[in-house]
Every structure is written in C-alpha cells, then in structure tokens.
Nucleic acid binder design. Structure first.
Lengths: 247, 247
DNA sequence: TATAATTGTAACACAATTGTAATAAAGATG
DNA sequence: CATCTTTATTACAATTGTGTTACAATTATA
C-alpha cells in the first residue's frame, strides 16, 4: 500500500519513454541558477538533454531551433519570460512548446501565458515530479512523438491503433480510456517484459503524484475484461508487477 | 604490513574489478562532518566501502570513477550538491547514481517555494535503515549495479532474463519469486564465488533487518527444486555459505 | 446544466510468498 | 568412531500481494 513515488524507479521508465521520443532537448531559462540546476539534474535523470540559460538575453543568443521544449521562468531580471516567449514564437517563428514557471498564480497571469501559446503553466511551489510529469506529457503529444514508431501495433488478433486510440480484437472495435490505452501501448511495445506498478504509473499517467500503486490493479482488471479472451495474457507476477505475454 | 597490503589489494580490486564487487564503494559529500560519519559508520557495517568529502570542491579532487554511488548533501557551503551532480554527470561524464540528502526545514532563499518531491530525495532527519535500503535497491538495479549489465545472463542451459524476471532452463520458462530471482542474479553474476548467508541477505533482500540467516537455506532449497537438474550446482560450503558452480 | 464516462479508493476475499521452527541428514572435528 | 556443528527439508503460520467489486469523486460531453 505504498504511494508510488520512488526516486530510483525512473531509470527503467527512462528507457521506456525515450524509446518513444527522440532525444528531447530542453532549454531551461531562469535567473535563479540553483533552480536551473535542480530541474536540469532531474530532467537529465529522466533521459532528457538539457541546456540552461540564466537570462532571456543569454537564451536568445543560443541556436534555439535545436530545442524541443522551453522552460521559461516568468520573473527574471531583464527580459521577462513572457517577452522571451513572444520573441521566440513571433520573431523567431518557432512553434516549440513552452512551459512557464513562476511563483505568480493569478488568473491574469495564466491567461497571459496561454495567449502566448504556453503549452503548460506551472506555478511555484511545484514538485520536481510534477514538472517532469508535465514535460513528459507534452513530449508525448502528437508532433513530438517518435516518428518512426509504428502507428499500429499488431500482436496475434490484437491491434492497437495509435491514431484512433483504439484497440481491435479480431477486427472488433474496442474503445480504450486514455490510461488503458497507454498501458496497452507499454505492454505491446515490450511484450514479455515485467513492469512494476510504479513503471506503469510513470508511463501511462501524466501526473502520478497522488495515485496509489494499487490503482494499477483496478485498471488491469478493467483492461482484462475489455481484452476478452486475450485478457488472460496480462499476467501478474507476484512481487514483480505485470506483463503482457501470449503463450 | 598486512593492513597496508590488504588496503592496496582492496583498492586495486575496486579499480580493476568494479563490475563484480560485492562491496560497493560509496562517496558521501556533506559539509556536516557528523552526518558523514554517521552514514559512513552505518554503511560500513552493511559491508559498503565508504569515502567522505566535506565539500563539493574536495569531492571533485578525488578520483571519482572508482565510486559506485554518490550521496550528496544539497545544501553545502560553496558548491551545492546539485552543482556537484551536474559536474559529475556532464563534465566528468559519469553515470554513477546520485542520492541527494536534504534538510527538511531548509531556509535557503533560492529554494523557497520550490518543493522537492518528498520521495525523490532523502530528507534529514532520515532513518539510516531507509537510506541503506534505498542504496541497496540502487546497487541492485540493472545498469547501475554494474557498469553495463547484460539483460540476459546465460550459463550452460540456464538463462536468467532480467526483463521477464524469469529463468529459462533449456528453454523452459521458470517463474521466480523476487527473492529467488535476486539470489540467482547474484549467483550467475559471480559463478564459483562463495557467498555467506549475510551477503545473500544483503543483496537479495531490501530489508533484512528482521530476517534470520537460516531463511536463506529455505530459499536455496526452493531454488534447487526450481532449477531441476541444475539444482545440484548450488553448492553449500559448510561454514562458508553457498555458491553456484557448474563442474 | 445535466448526463455520461472515467477515474481513484476502500474493502474484502483469496492467493502467493515468505519466515520460522522442528526434525532429519550430512559434514566437520577430535 | 562419537560428538558436535552445520545444512536440508518439511510443514505451517504470518505476511504480503492480487482480483474484484462497489461507490464516490472527478472529468468530459451533450
């Protein structure tokens, strides 16, 4: 009955996620160097490549096209994160997603952030885990996914259509909920591999901060039902976790 | 004379044979010397080899490649633990795992309002037991325990699949319980080497504080059964412990 | 807003695993 | 060989892990 947070469980998750994304390159811009370091370390532990700048001006001197995601602090000495985002979006014509980071959390600020095309908006205090979960969620969105990933995963009579977000069993359409879908994606991409509940949560949940690991069990039960006679191939390995394996 | 020789041999063994050490070498960096000593004492009594540094700068003057795990205090005079981690990871290109220590009621301005995921770090005051359990969990993880551990361990007709958490005997699937699995991992990674019951407990149990060493015997018996005709290769060396050796 | 879909949790029953103690067997020692 | 120590095996109890359901909470949708 553990809440599923463990600092050491991310290594595997890393491998899993990084298979589905190209090596994501993140630029963090914050004038508080320690904050940069903390985020940098944590994202790197998750397999991201990270660059930092301690001011908007410094950021603008970089070759910005090479990044896949920006994390901007709003309140910075000199040019603010808002203006930096504006520069990047409008003058440099980049569509790179931006996550804003700030202590301010009024509605006005949020609206300003989104009008600039922020992809997410994280207010301090925030947990490192939350940030990482959100960044991963963004990277998982269409357009940031690994292009060489097959759209359809076929195994025996099962077919997971990643565009339709749907499962076909012997041709029958089976709608999956988001979590169910990602769990299946994890399983079908690595059949036979045993995943701990933590790994499953890390992969299939955008934000697993407040979710018990036993929740996974319930989703497994629901999935098994939906999978009909394939349900039995979701195998539980007591003490290890779950895996999907035919035969 | 003897002491010197032993130290030298030990040191040499560490540098040359990092991969197969059962006595992981840990570097603790904390500007509070007392904390260093406490952790050091406890880890040493668990069979770890421990070195300490009282500042990040001092740590960086060491030969860092020889350690298997770092424990960094975040808040230190001079360079912070995060900076140190960054140096180690990026400049020195080391993948050595890092455990951060942080005081619960830190008043550092730069981090105010920034909540570290409580479970991402070990917070002071922390239980030594917890620290040790986590450190051991790390050391056991594929990719961290040894530099590059193969996913599959093959010996004769045996194959231990670390993703599937399963043993194959001449191709036959044999499911292993968590403890059985880790014991096999220990044996197959060091065939021929004799392990005391204590060493086996230390490796295969996350928390062996309340476990009798006789328990190992029972697990050995169970393993032997599962190993079928390979069971006889788990050899008991009276007064020493157990080892796995084919012929 | 009302309605449906999805999700998370608690509770319980059941299953697997683990730890211990008792006893038998094997090994070490003199 | 006799004695003591260590190991093997078994059975059982304790603990831990899993499956399932119902229900409340949340979120999406009409």
């Amino acid at each position: 009955m553990n809440i599923c947070l463990n600092m050491f469980n991310d290594e595997l998750n890393n491998l899993i996620n990084m298979k589905n994304t190209l090596h994501p390159f993140v630029l963090i811009v914050d004038d508080e160097e320690d904050i940069c370091e903390i985020i940098k370390f944590n994202l790197e532990s998750e397999g991201f490549k990270v660059d930092t700048a301690y001011s908007a001006e410094e950021a603008l001197r970089k070759q910005l096209t090479k990044y896949h995601l920006f994390i901007f602090d709003i309140m910075m000495k000199g040019m603010s994160g808002y203006r930096l985002a504006d520069e990047v979006r409008n003058k440099k014509k980049l569509k790179t997603p931006v996550v804003f980071l700030t202590a301010k959390n009024t509605e006005n600020d949020k609206l300003t952030g989104f009008s600039l095309g922020a992809d997410d908006y994280i207010t301090k205090p925030f947990s490192v885990r939350e940030l990482i979960a959100r960044v991963k969620a963004i990277m998982r969105r269409p357009g940031h996914q690994d292009t060489e990933e097959p759209v359809r995963l076929k195994i025996a009579g099962l077919e997971l259509d990643q565009e339709k977000k749907r499962l076909f069993i012997e041709g029958d359409k089976i709608d999956l909920t988001p979590h169910e879908f990602y769990i299946m994606m994890l399983f079908l991409n690595h059949t036979g591999k045993v995943f701990t509940r933590e790994e499953i949560l890390n992969y299939a949940w955008k934000d697993n901060i407040n979710v018990l690991d036993r929740t996974v069990d319930v989703h497994i039960t629901r999935l098994r039902k939906k999978l009909r006679n394939y349900g039995k191939y979701i195998i539980s390995r007591s003490g290890h976790g779950y895996c999907f394996e035919i035969e």
